[in-house]
C-alpha cells in the first residue's frame, strides 16, 4: 500500500510539473498582425519595450516618441519596462519583451551562449563607458593610470571590458592598477572625495556631474582603441521575423524622436520630466546629461550612414577583442551576422 501511495504521489508530481503551470513556453513565436494591412488601421499592436534599470533623461527619445504620438501614429501601443541589462537580454530572447535597449558588449556573450537576440539599431554610436579623473590628478592618458587607484563597480560588464581595452592600449593590464570595487556605483562619490584617482563611469552621467559640481574632469575614451558597440536596440531573432512591421515602425519612430531631441534638446528634457517628474528638480544638470547623451548618439559612422546605423567593422573588431579576453566572456566563435541585423532599420 505504501509503495502504491508513493507511486501515485510521484505520478501526480510529474503530471503537475509537466502541465507547465502557465509558465512561459517560448517555443511558439508570438502572432503578429498581417504585414499587408497597415498597422494604424487596426487595433494598435502592443509592444513591450525594455529600457535601462532606472528611468532617466537618457531615455528622452523614447519618452518624446510616446508623448508626441509617434508610436501611436505608427499603430503601436508601447509599454516601457525598466530592467537591468542581463535580465533584459534574456527576456528579449525569450520573447517576453519585444524590443529593448542593451549594451553591445553584452549581446556578444549572450549570443555566444545561444540567447537568440540581434542588435537591430545603434543608439549610442560612441561607447558611453569611460574612465574619468579629476583634471588635477595629472591623469591624461591610459598609461598614467599605472599604480593609481581606480574605482569601478565590479570586474564584469561593459565597464570592465572597456577598462581592459583602455589599459591594453598602454601595455597595461588590470593588475597594474589598484582596483577599488564599488558595487553600488559609489565610485563617482569616491572620486569626488579623493578616495580614488580615477573611476569608470558613463560619459553622460558621472563626469557630467563632476563638471557640474565645479571640478574639471579628464576623460579617457576607448573608441579610438577598439570601437566597442554601445547601447542599442535589441530584438529576438523570432521577433524580427514575426513582428517585423511593428518593430520597424517602432525603430523608425524612435529614430525620428532622436532627431527631434538632437535638434532641440529642451524638447527631450521636457518629455523626460513629464515622464519622470523627479528629474525636474535640477533641470540644468539633466539638460547637461541629455546634451552629453546626444553627443554619444552620433559618430562619424552615423553621420555618414544615418542614426541607428550599425558599424559592422566595429563589431568584428570587438568580437576579436572580447574573444581574447582572459575571463573568456565569449563562449564560442560568433559571426557578426549572428549578432546584428539591419532588417528593422529604415531603408
Amino acid at each position: 500500500m505504501r509503495r502504491l501511495t508513493s507511486l501515485a504521489l510521484a505520478t501526480m508530481l510529474l503530471a503537475a510539473a509537466c502541465s507547465g503551470g502557465g509558465s512561459p513556453g517560448p517555443s511558439v513565436p508570438p502572432v503578429s498582425p498581417s504585414p499587408s494591412v497597415p498597422a494604424s488601421a487596426l487595433t494598435p499592436t502592443k509592444l513591450t519595450v525594455g529600457l535601462g534599470y532606472i528611468p532617466s533623461v537618457q531615455f528622452a527619445q523614447f519618452y518624446l516618441a510616446q508623448q508626441a504620438g509617434y508610436y501611436r501614429d505608427a499603430g503601436l501601443d508601447v509599454t516601457f519596462q525598466n530592467k537591468i541589462d542581463p535580465d533584459l537580454i534574456t527576456l528579449v530572447g525569450q520573447g517576453a519583451v519585444d524590443i529593448g535597449i542593451a549594451d553591445g558588449t553584452s549581446v556578444i556573450p549572450a549570443v555566444s551562449q545561444g540567447i537568440p537576440v540581434r542588435y537591430v539599431a545603434t543608439i549610442y554610436a560612441q561607447f558611453p563607458n569611460v574612465v574619468y579623473a579629476r583634471e588635477s590628478s595629472g591623469i591624461r592618458t591610459a598609461g598614467d593610470l599605472k599604480s593609481r587607484k581606480l574605482g569601478t563597480p565590479g570586474k564584469f560588464g561593459s565597464s570592465w571590458i572597456m577598462l581592459q581595452a583602455l589599459l591594453g592600449s598602454a601595455g597595461l593590464t588590470t593588475n597594474d592598477v589598484s582596483i577599488q570595487l564599488y558595487p553600488d556605483f559609489g565610485q563617482g562619490a569616491a572620486l569626488q572625495q579623493g578616495a580614488v584617482d580615477a573611476a569608470t563611469g558613463f560619459i553622460n552621467n558621472e563626469p557630467v556631474q563632476l563638471e557640474q559640481s565645479g571640478t574639471p574632469a579628464t576623460l579617457l575614451k576607448v573608441d579610438s582603441i577598439v570601437p566597442l558597440p554601445g547601447n542599442g536596440l535589441i530584438a529576438s531573432s523570432d521577433g524580427i521575423q514575426a513582428k517585423s512591421t511593428p518593430l520597424k515602425a517602432f525603430v523608425a519612430a524612435t529614430l525620428r524622436a532622436m532627431n527631434d531631441v538632437i535638434a532641440d534638446p529642451q524638447k527631450g528634457l521636457d518629455a523626460a520630466v513629464a515622464a519622470v517628474p523627479e528629474l525636474g528638480k535640477d533641470r540644468a544638470l539633466q539638460l547637461a546629461i541629455l546634451k552629453a547623451t546626444i553627443d554619444t548618439w552620433q559618430s562619424a559612422y552615423t553621420k555618414a550612414h544615418g542614426l541607428g546605423a550599425i558599424d559592422r567593422d566595429g563589431w568584428t573588431k570587438t568580437v576579436a577583442f572580447m574573444t581574447g579576453l582572459p575571463d573568456h566572456p565569449v563562449a564560442r566563435q560568433v559571426s557578426v551576422d549572428e549578432l546584428v541585423s539591419e532588417a528593422l532599420l529604415p531603408k
Binding site: 517560448p26 530572447g93 549572450a110 545561444g114 540567447i115
Partner: peptide, 8 residues
C-alpha cells in the same frame, strides 16, 4: 514538455 531553451 515546456520546450524551454537552455538559457531559460
Amino acid at each position: 514538455v515546456g520546450g524551454f531553451r537552455p538559457f531559460v
